[in-house]
Write a protein that binds this DNA or RNA. Structure first.
Length: 356
DNA sequence: AAAAGAACCAACCGCATCTGA
DNA sequence: TTCAGATGCGGTTGGTTCTTT
């Protein structure tokens, strides 16, 4: 128990390695193997602690280390694995031959994390951030202020509006609950077999977020009160239709949407068309899957919030699972595939068992 | 051309876990 | 079963390089 005292010992060199030290270390390991890291520095003639030698070897000198920029495929693999494993860098590194955990960690912290944040995704949960809710009271207050200044509304109109907003707020609170990860420290375990209702709720959540984005736009673009009210009513109607309140007691943890490869050139999320597929009623046929379609060309505030493509971390192939049983979400998009892990697919996945 | 700030990444630190006596 | 040493892992630091002003 307890930590190794080797690094506390005085007189041992720290800091950057010189080419001579590297040469000694490589030569020794090539001839003898590393054996005991603690004993290695003495045997190799290095004035370093064993820990430092191990780190230098595993992160830099090992012959199988791959150098250079991460490819798009590697980036996608890291994103997918991170959504599954969280900050388990060594576990992620085992799926990226030639890459070290340290390198992946650095790449994540300097590139991928920032990209996700820029796109409005929580880098830990890989879900859309819910920050929008914190500004909602402010937006509503602004809208009301504008109306009060521009129009002399009757008390009935005001009362109706307040009533609508109250309903909206209650539903937003539900939505916020649905979007929250179960813990704040670890990512949402996507390995949990998603249930039908979970899939529906994630789709509903996206739908709701879309309408919220349009609410925000409406507030800024009100030409007159009647149009605002029309839009507002439409949004409320959307909210009414979107949340299956009757099913709320069944609601548990929604399955996660994994993140897509980014548009590397434009550094933004871009999808021409997306269709999420989930079990549920369709107005035309109660047995056919429910579709939700979103389109976007730029990540503006009014852009729909989109569940992006998913790459299978094991095969590196885009999933294009079209499962009408309701366990999967699938889509066709400009990336050629989008989805949420289907339950049976996950259970067969060796990675799932490894994690479980 | 110089200074400031941002980005990058190798290396360190300390805790957790493993291993063997 | 306990305990100490060894190793692994993830967070953090700080020096270097690149970019912007």
């Amino acid at each position: 128990m307890g930590r190794s005292p080797c690094c506390d010992e005085s007189g041992l060199k720290k800091g950057p390695w010189t080419p001579e030290e590297d040469q000694k270390l490589v030569k020794y390991i090539q001839e003898h193997g590393h054996g005991s890291w603690r004993a290695l520095p003495t045997l190799a003639g290095l004035n370093r602690c064993g820990k430092s030698c191990r780190l230098r070897w595993t992160n830099y000198l090992r012959p199988d280390i791959k150098r250079g920029k991460f490819s798009q495929e590697e980036e996608q693999t890291i994103l997918n694995l991170h959504s599954l494993l969280g900050n388990k860098w060594s576990a992620i590194a085992t799926h990226l031959p030639g890459r070290t955990d340290n390198e992946i960690k650095n790449f994540w912290n300097t590139h991928l994390k920032k990209k996700l944040i820029q796109m409005g995704f929580d880098p830990m949960t890989h879900r859309p951030r819910t920050d929008i809710f914190s500004s909602l009271p402010h937006l509503i207050a602004l809208a009301n202020l504008k109306e009060l200044m521009d129009h002399q509304n009757s008390w009935e109109e005001q009362a109706l509006k307040l009533q609508s907003e109250a309903v909206q707020m209650v539903k937003l609170q539900h939505l916020q609950y649905l979007l929250q990860p179960t813990t704040t420290t670890s990512p949402q375990p996507i390995a949990m077999p998603p249930t039908t209702s979970n899939n529906i709720i994630d789709v509903e959540a996206l739908n709701l977020l879309n309408s919220l984005a349009s609410i925000e736009d409406n507030i800024h673009q009100i030409p007159n009160l009647s149009q605002f009210e029309t839009n507002n009513e439409r949004n409320i109607q959307t909210l009414n239709e979107s949340i299956p309140f009757a099913h709320l007691p069944e609601l548990e943890i929604p399955c996660s949407f994994l993140l897509s490869p980014l548009d590397s050139e434009n550094n933004m999320f871009q999808a021409s068309t997306m269709t999420l597929l989930s079990q549920g009623e369709n107005s035309n046929s109660p047995h056919s899957p429910r579709f939700l379609t979103a389109s976007s060309s730029s990540p503006t505030s009014s852009s729909p919030i989109i569940a992006p493509p998913l790459t299978d971390p094991m095969t590196m192939n885009h999933n294009s699972i079209n499962n009408n049983q309701g366990d999967a979400c699938s889509t066709s998009s400009s990336y050629g595939g989008v989805g949420v892990w289907p339950a049976d697919c996950l259970l067969e996945d060796p990675l799932f068992h490894e994690i479980a």
